[in-house]
Design a protein around this nucleic acid. Structure first.
Lengths: 200, 200
DNA sequence: GTCTGTGAAGCGATTCACAGCG
DNA sequence: CGCTGTGAATCGCTTCACAGAC
C-alpha cells in the first residue's frame, strides 16, 4: 500500500506485480495471490492502477475512515508510539491515552491529556475505540486487556513482554525484549550448532 | 527461556513440554521439536531441568556473555528502547548510542553519552559490537545499515519503516507503523470480505 | 505480446503417533 | 507408567506454470 501511494504521488499511474515485487522484496506471485484472497483488482496484460489499488487495500485494512486507538501506558514506549504515530501515520491515530500513575494523569502527551486507567473501558465505549495498544509493564498487561475487552475493543497490539490471548479479540503480541534477545542468535560465533538446516 | 527462568526462580526444578506448552501458548510437540534442532536436553519419563534448560537456551541464543548492541537514533523510540532494555533485560544491553543531530550528541541517555553517527562504524569496531538497532527515520536507515556493516555488525534490528536487507548480515525488520496499520484489519466491521479462510 | 488470476505441484513446517528410555 | 525424542502423515503456504483477458 505504501509503495502504491508513493508511486501514485510520483505520478506513476500503473504498475505490475513484478514491479511491486522489486520494490517490496516479495515475489510477484505472492503479491498476486495475496490480492486474490480479496478480489481481482488488476487488468490483464496491463497491471494495476496504483491509486485505485492503494485505495482498495486501505478499504481491506479498514483504514478508510481514520482509525483511532486507545493507547494504554504513557511511559517511554507509549510516548514514543504516540508521537511516532502522530508524526508518520495519518490513518491510524491515538484517540486517548491512559496511565495508572497519578503523576502522569493530567499531563499532555502528543496533544492529548493522559486519562486514569480506571476510565479505560468507559472511555473506549464512549469514544467508540475499537483498537487498543498496550504499552504497560508485564504485570499490568492482563488487566488492561480485560478492560479493553470490557470497553468493546476488538483488536489489540500488546507490547508488554507477556503472551496475551483473549478470544474472540484479536491480540497481536509484539515483545521488544524478545526481539532484542533473539537477534543475537544471528551473531557470527555460534556456540551451539543446529542439527540441520535451521537458520531461517 | 523466560518461563523456565521464572520457574527455576520459583523453586520448580523440573517441568514437562506439556507444562511449558500451557504456560507459553505453543504446543508440547512444537516445544520438543524446536529443542530437537539443537540437541536432547530432557530426561525421558521425567521432563526438563528448568535451570539447566534455560541455560542451554541462553547458550543457543548467544546470550551467555552479555551482548552489547549499538543503538542508532536517540529520538523517542531510541530512548524508549535504551531505557526499556536497561530496566528489563540484563543479557542484552546498549553498548553505545548514536545520533546525527548535533543537539542530541553529548546528551546522556540511559547512562550513555550520545555519540555522532559519523563515528558509528569505527566505534562498533573498537567496542566489538556485533548487533545494531536502527531507530532513525526511514530516509536515514539505509546509510545507517551500511555503516553498521562497515563496523562489522552481523545482526541488525530495524525499526525504521523501510524493508532493509543486506546479505550476509541478518536484518530483522520491525515496522511499528505497519503493525499499527494492520491491526485495524481485525476490527469487527469488515468492509471487504475475504474469499476463503483468511483470518490468520 | 503482456500481465493478471488461479489451479496444481512442491515444500517446509506443524501435528500425529509411538518407540525408547528412565 | 510418564514423558522425551523422532519418523511419518498432514497441512497450509509458496512457487510454478499457464489459460484468459486486454
Amino acid at each position: 500500500m505504501r509503495e502504491l501511494e508513493d508511486m501514485s504521488r510520483d505520478g506513476i499511474p500503473v504498475t505490475s506485480s513484478a514491479e511491486l515485487a522489486g520494490r517490496t522484496g516479495f515475489t510477484s506471485e505472492q503479491i498476486r495471490k495475496d490480492l486474490a484472497y480479496f478480489g481481482a483488482f488488476g487488468t490483464r496484460g496491463v497491471g494495476y492502477d496504483t491509486s485505485a489499488l492503494a485505495l482498495q487495500i486501505r478499504r481491506i485494512l479498514g483504514l478508510e475512515r481514520g482509525v483511532k486507538y486507545a493507547l494504554v501506558g504513557a511511559g517511554n514506549l507509549g510516548t514514543a508510539l504516540a508521537r511516532y504515530a502522530q508524526a508518520r501515520i495519518h490513518d491510524v491515530v491515538v484517540g486517548a491515552i491512559f496511565d495508572s500513575d497519578p503523576q502522569k494523569v493530567g499531563q499532555v502527551v502528543a496533544e492529548l491529556v493522559v486519562q486514569p486507567v480506571d476510565d479505560l473501558a468507559a472511555s473506549c465505549r464512549r469514544l467508540g475505540l475499537k483498537v487498543g495498544v498496550i504499552a504497560v509493564p508485564a504485570e499490568a498487561a492482563r488487566s488492561v486487556l480485560e478492560a479493553l475487552d470490557a470497553g468493546g475493543c476488538q483488536a489489540v497490539l500488546n507490547f508488554a513482554p507477556v503472551k496475551l490471548s483473549r478470544p474472540p479479540m484479536h491480540v497481536q503480541n509484539l515483545d521488544l525484549t524478545l526481539e532484542l534477545e533473539s537477534i543475537t542468535y544471528y551473531t557470527g560465533a555460534r556456540l551451539v550448532r543446529p542439527r540441520s538446516g535451521v537458520e531461517a
